Simulated scan of single mutants.
Amino acid sequence: MTTQTAANRPLHACLTQIPTAIAAVSDYENFAHERLDDNAWAYVHSGAADEITLRRNRQAFDQLALHSRVLSDMRGGQTRLQLFGQTLQHPVLLAPVAYQTLFHPEGELASVRAAAAMDAGMVVSTLATHTLEQIASHAAAPLWFQLYFQPDREFTLQLLRRAEAAGYQALVVTVDAPIAGIRNREQRAGFHLPAGVGAVNLQGMRQPQLQLAEGQSRVFDGLMAHAPTWREIERLRQLTDLPLILKGITHPQDALLALELGADGIIISNHGGRTLDSLPATLEMLPAVAKALQGRMPLLLDGGIRRGTDVLKALALGASAVLVGRPLVYALATAGALGVAHMLRTLREELEISMALTGCRTLKDITPAVLAMSNT
């Protein structure tokens, strides 16, 4: 069965079972492309500017080799970890992804059911297409809320209080995207949100009017006028007892500032290569941040994860867990909750096999010693 889009490109129906052709997480990409129109594809598949960082995120994993170890006793091995006072069965979480009904009619509800089925943590975006409360009602694994500071700070506080009341177990504040990156792929496609797709949790918020005096910059005096600063992170820390995680930290000095202001953890992220182009890969930045923090707070990482060996490499360089974004979208677009669950299971099984073949019975056994060459 196919349908027709406005761009007159046929779309294939969502799968109800996973074919043998999908043997790896990366296989989902082509299947998703067949099922998304040009508008949605431009959104999920785009990076900033020339997409150097987007490509580099993936290349960094490919350039890092592993040592194998043999004849190790693997009985009793497992992938369980404690993170922010919560028990996770494995270190792969679903990253916050906006507008998920752009990719599948059930959107975030399908994703959270898949996360529950696979005992995976999920981070829900401020720009979700279902309410925070609806998504939370389907959760059966750790659920975190990703917060974008809004120009209306009182409305921002209301979002936080809603997340607390709905039972979200951590607050993830994205700090690396106060303004959108220059995404030429989206511009060339004329990307727009279709009717019926929107950020339902922002309904009713007052939007500021952009008024510039002569000589003022649209960027510095306009778009950045309401951007958060470190002072607001400090205030936010005082407003909630939830674990506070800052997403988008890549510089060691920013990591130390986050620690000083009371953050409980950070996510090393370059927004999937969607904000500032020419940034290093997140994997390349991980060792320096880990060295600066010396284990004083958990580090998570996103960007470029496609294999269980990628998860192993990130953990070897200092990450406690990883998040996946585009693989979530590709699997969601291909087969809904079934696809997302299969994607998560594939990564977990690959991680377990990688651990077994490198002599790591638990996550604590994964150290830089498993790396045959390191970018440290």
Rank of each mutant, 00 (worst) to 15 (best):
A165P: 01
A141G: 05
I245M: 13
D302H: 09
A65K: 10
E234M: 02
Y330P: 01
A369C: 00
L283S: 03
D221S: 12
T2E: 13
A166H: 04
S137I: 08
G325W: 02
R153K: 15
T334A: 14
S72W: 04
G359N: 06
N270A: 11
R188P: 00
L71E: 01
V370T: 14
E350P: 04
E154H: 14
L300S: 06
V70N: 12
G339I: 02
Q59A: 15
P178K: 05
L276P: 06
A115P: 03
A316S: 13
C14D: 00
D73G: 05
L259R: 12
L171I: 11
L94S: 04
L317I: 08
L301T: 06
R80S: 10
L147M: 15
R274Q: 08
D38C: 01
V370G: 14
R35W: 05
T20I: 14
A115C: 04
E133Y: 00
Y99T: 00
Q207A: 06
P96S: 06
I135N: 04
T334F: 06
D37G: 06
A331C: 01
T79K: 07
L242F: 02
L286G: 08
L300K: 09
A116T: 11
K291P: 00
G121D: 00
R307W: 07
I266V: 15
L261S: 05
A314W: 05
N39E: 01
R306Y: 00
A189I: 07
I266Q: 07
R183M: 02
E29T: 08
M205Y: 02
V200R: 04
D27V: 14
E106R: 12
T87A: 14
S137T: 15
A42E: 04
I305G: 06
L223K: 11
H130F: 13
P178D: 13
G325I: 08
D365S: 03
Q294N: 10
H342C: 10
L127K: 08
A290T: 10
G339E: 05
A341C: 03
G85Q: 10
L147F: 10
Y99Q: 00
G181A: 13
H12L: 11
D73I: 13
R348C: 13
A314P: 07
D264S: 11
T131E: 07
M373V: 09
T16N: 12
T240S: 15
D176M: 11
A331M: 03
R326Q: 08
L132C: 09
S374Y: 01
A116P: 08
L93S: 02
G121E: 01
V197L: 00
L54Q: 05
Q17M: 07
L347G: 12
P298D: 12
L293N: 10
E349M: 11
R9D: 01
G318M: 03
L93M: 13
M118L: 12
L300V: 11
I267Y: 02
P208S: 09
T376G: 08
G198D: 01
